[in-house]
Amino acid sequence: MDNRLEKIVKVLQEKAGAAYEEFRGEVHVFIAPGQIVDALTFLRDEHQFSLLSAMTAVDYWPKQDPRFHVIYQLTSLTQNLSLQLRVPVSGGLLKLPTATQVFQSANWREREIFDMFGIEFEGHPDPRRILMPDDWEGHPLRKDYPLGYEEPQFTFNFEEIDLRKPYAKE
Protein backbone atom coordinates (compact mmCIF):
# COMPACT_ATOMS: atom_id res chain seq x y z
CA MET A 1 0.00 0.00 0.00
CA ASP A 2 1.12 3.49 -0.76
CA ASN A 3 2.48 5.40 2.27
CA ARG A 4 0.10 8.30 1.85
CA LEU A 5 -2.83 5.95 1.48
CA GLU A 6 -1.73 4.06 4.57
CA LYS A 7 -1.88 7.26 6.62
CA ILE A 8 -5.35 8.09 5.35
CA VAL A 9 -6.63 4.61 6.10
CA LYS A 10 -5.16 4.83 9.60
CA VAL A 11 -7.00 8.08 10.26
CA LEU A 12 -10.23 6.58 8.93
CA GLN A 13 -9.75 3.60 11.22
CA GLU A 14 -9.31 5.86 14.23
CA LYS A 15 -12.22 8.09 13.35
CA ALA A 16 -14.74 5.56 12.15
CA GLY A 17 -13.33 2.24 13.26
CA ALA A 18 -13.24 1.19 9.66
CA ALA A 19 -11.92 -2.15 8.50
CA TYR A 20 -10.07 -2.38 5.21
CA GLU A 21 -8.99 -4.91 2.64
CA GLU A 22 -6.44 -4.79 -0.13
CA PHE A 23 -6.55 -6.54 -3.49
CA ARG A 24 -4.17 -6.00 -6.43
CA GLY A 25 -3.08 -2.67 -5.04
CA GLU A 26 -6.60 -1.36 -4.51
CA VAL A 27 -7.69 -0.39 -1.03
CA HIS A 28 -11.29 -0.86 0.08
CA VAL A 29 -12.33 0.72 3.36
CA PHE A 30 -15.55 -0.35 5.03
CA ILE A 31 -17.55 2.51 6.51
CA ALA A 32 -20.76 2.37 8.53
CA PRO A 33 -23.81 3.94 6.82
CA GLY A 34 -24.04 6.74 9.38
CA GLN A 35 -20.48 7.90 8.85
CA ILE A 36 -20.22 7.92 5.07
CA VAL A 37 -20.95 11.63 4.57
CA ASP A 38 -18.38 12.59 7.21
CA ALA A 39 -15.83 10.28 5.66
CA LEU A 40 -16.41 11.69 2.17
CA THR A 41 -16.21 15.26 3.43
CA PHE A 42 -13.03 14.46 5.34
CA LEU A 43 -11.40 12.86 2.30
CA ARG A 44 -12.44 15.67 0.01
CA ASP A 45 -11.36 18.51 2.27
CA GLU A 46 -8.30 17.11 4.02
CA HIS A 47 -6.84 14.83 1.38
CA GLN A 48 -7.89 16.39 -1.93
CA PHE A 49 -10.02 13.47 -3.11
CA SER A 50 -11.85 15.88 -5.35
CA LEU A 51 -13.35 13.44 -7.85
CA LEU A 52 -16.01 10.86 -7.10
CA SER A 53 -15.04 8.63 -9.99
CA ALA A 54 -17.70 6.01 -9.65
CA MET A 55 -20.50 5.09 -7.35
CA THR A 56 -22.40 1.89 -7.53
CA ALA A 57 -23.85 -0.94 -5.49
CA VAL A 58 -23.56 -4.70 -5.34
CA ASP A 59 -26.31 -7.07 -4.26
CA TYR A 60 -25.20 -10.12 -2.24
CA TRP A 61 -28.64 -11.68 -1.94
CA PRO A 62 -29.14 -14.31 -0.55
CA LYS A 63 -25.65 -15.09 0.73
CA GLN A 64 -24.75 -12.20 3.01
CA ASP A 65 -26.69 -10.31 5.55
CA PRO A 66 -25.83 -6.72 4.90
CA ARG A 67 -27.41 -7.40 1.56
CA PHE A 68 -26.00 -4.47 -0.39
CA HIS A 69 -22.64 -2.81 -0.56
CA VAL A 70 -22.69 0.74 -1.83
CA ILE A 71 -19.34 1.61 -3.35
CA TYR A 72 -17.73 5.03 -3.60
CA GLN A 73 -14.66 5.16 -5.82
CA LEU A 74 -12.66 8.28 -5.03
CA THR A 75 -9.78 9.82 -6.93
CA SER A 76 -7.32 12.42 -5.79
CA LEU A 77 -6.00 14.33 -8.77
CA THR A 78 -3.22 16.15 -6.96
CA GLN A 79 -1.86 13.06 -5.21
CA ASN A 80 -2.81 10.59 -7.97
CA LEU A 81 -4.40 8.20 -5.47
CA SER A 82 -7.50 6.06 -5.51
CA LEU A 83 -9.53 4.87 -2.59
CA GLN A 84 -12.68 2.84 -2.47
CA LEU A 85 -15.22 3.18 0.31
CA ARG A 86 -17.73 0.41 0.80
CA VAL A 87 -20.87 0.88 2.83
CA PRO A 88 -22.80 -2.25 3.81
CA VAL A 89 -26.54 -1.64 3.77
CA SER A 90 -28.75 -4.31 5.25
CA GLY A 91 -31.82 -5.55 3.44
CA GLY A 92 -34.37 -4.41 6.00
CA LEU A 93 -33.50 -0.74 6.16
CA LEU A 94 -32.66 0.39 2.65
CA LYS A 95 -31.66 3.91 3.50
CA LEU A 96 -28.44 5.86 3.23
CA PRO A 97 -27.72 9.55 3.73
CA THR A 98 -27.17 11.33 0.44
CA ALA A 99 -23.73 12.52 -0.60
CA THR A 100 -24.97 15.18 -3.01
CA GLN A 101 -23.83 18.06 -0.82
CA VAL A 102 -20.29 16.67 -0.87
CA PHE A 103 -20.13 15.65 -4.54
CA GLN A 104 -22.64 16.92 -7.08
CA SER A 105 -21.93 13.89 -9.24
CA ALA A 106 -23.54 11.72 -6.56
CA ASN A 107 -26.89 13.18 -7.61
CA TRP A 108 -27.41 11.11 -10.77
CA ARG A 109 -25.47 8.16 -9.41
CA GLU A 110 -27.72 7.91 -6.36
CA ARG A 111 -30.74 8.12 -8.61
CA GLU A 112 -29.29 5.28 -10.63
CA ILE A 113 -28.66 3.17 -7.52
CA PHE A 114 -32.19 3.84 -6.37
CA ASP A 115 -33.49 2.87 -9.79
CA MET A 116 -31.43 -0.29 -10.11
CA PHE A 117 -31.26 -1.49 -6.49
CA GLY A 118 -34.00 0.29 -4.61
CA ILE A 119 -31.73 1.89 -2.05
CA GLU A 120 -33.16 5.21 -0.96
CA PHE A 121 -30.99 8.19 -0.26
CA GLU A 122 -32.31 10.45 2.47
CA GLY A 123 -32.24 14.13 1.63
CA HIS A 124 -31.71 13.58 -2.07
CA PRO A 125 -32.85 16.69 -4.00
CA ASP A 126 -34.42 14.79 -6.91
CA PRO A 127 -35.50 11.30 -5.91
CA ARG A 128 -36.87 9.95 -9.18
CA ARG A 129 -36.03 6.98 -11.35
CA ILE A 130 -33.39 7.81 -13.91
CA LEU A 131 -32.97 5.00 -16.43
CA MET A 132 -36.18 3.00 -16.26
CA PRO A 133 -39.62 4.48 -16.98
CA ASP A 134 -41.30 6.14 -14.00
CA ASP A 135 -43.95 3.44 -13.75
CA TRP A 136 -41.52 0.52 -13.85
CA GLU A 137 -41.93 -2.12 -11.17
CA GLY A 138 -38.96 -3.61 -9.38
CA HIS A 139 -35.26 -2.84 -9.39
CA PRO A 140 -33.53 -4.65 -12.26
CA LEU A 141 -30.00 -5.12 -10.95
CA ARG A 142 -31.11 -6.91 -7.80
CA LYS A 143 -30.18 -10.55 -7.85
CA ASP A 144 -33.77 -11.66 -7.26
CA TYR A 145 -34.95 -9.75 -10.33
CA PRO A 146 -35.12 -12.03 -13.38
CA LEU A 147 -33.03 -11.26 -16.43
CA GLY A 148 -36.16 -11.32 -18.57
CA TYR A 149 -34.91 -13.86 -21.08
CA GLU A 150 -37.20 -14.62 -24.00
CA GLU A 151 -36.83 -17.79 -26.02
CA PRO A 152 -35.13 -17.11 -29.36
CA GLN A 153 -36.84 -18.23 -32.54
CA PHE A 154 -35.12 -21.03 -34.45
CA THR A 155 -36.34 -23.20 -37.30
CA PHE A 156 -37.66 -25.93 -35.02
CA ASN A 157 -39.76 -23.65 -32.83
CA PHE A 158 -40.44 -20.85 -35.29
CA GLU A 159 -44.15 -21.38 -35.70
CA GLU A 160 -44.85 -22.03 -32.06
CA ILE A 161 -43.29 -18.70 -31.05
CA ASP A 162 -44.64 -16.91 -34.11
CA LEU A 163 -48.18 -17.68 -33.02
CA ARG A 164 -47.82 -16.08 -29.61
CA LYS A 165 -45.56 -13.21 -30.59
CA PRO A 166 -47.44 -9.93 -30.14
CA TYR A 167 -47.01 -8.44 -33.60
CA ALA A 168 -47.97 -4.81 -33.94
CA LYS A 169 -50.92 -3.74 -36.05
CA GLU A 170 -50.93 -0.93 -38.55
Binding site: E26, S53, A54, Q73
Partner: peptide, 27 residues
Protein backbone atom coordinates in the same frame (compact mmCIF):
# COMPACT_ATOMS: atom_id res chain seq x y z
CA UNK B 1 -12.76 -10.16 -5.19
CA UNK B 2 -13.33 -6.91 -6.97
CA UNK B 3 -11.23 -4.57 -9.08
CA UNK B 4 -11.74 -1.13 -10.58
CA UNK B 5 -9.80 -0.36 -13.69
CA UNK B 6 -10.09 2.75 -15.80
CA UNK B 7 -8.86 3.98 -19.13
CA UNK B 8 -8.99 7.32 -20.88
CA UNK B 9 -11.73 6.98 -23.47
CA UNK B 10 -12.32 9.74 -26.06
CA UNK B 11 -14.89 11.12 -23.65
CA UNK B 12 -13.11 10.72 -20.33
CA UNK B 13 -12.54 8.18 -17.63
CA UNK B 14 -14.10 4.90 -18.66
CA UNK B 15 -13.98 2.68 -15.62
CA UNK B 16 -15.01 -0.89 -15.08
CA UNK B 17 -15.88 -2.20 -11.67
CA UNK B 18 -15.65 -5.97 -11.94
CA UNK B 19 -16.44 -8.36 -9.16
CA UNK B 20 -15.93 -12.11 -9.30
CA UNK B 21 -17.45 -14.74 -7.05
CA UNK B 22 -15.06 -17.62 -7.72
CA UNK B 23 -17.10 -18.85 -10.68
CA UNK B 24 -16.75 -18.35 -14.42
CA UNK B 25 -19.27 -15.50 -14.61
CA UNK B 26 -18.85 -11.96 -13.34
CA UNK B 27 -20.84 -11.35 -10.19
Amino acid sequence: ASVYSAIESPRGELGVYLEGDGGPKPY
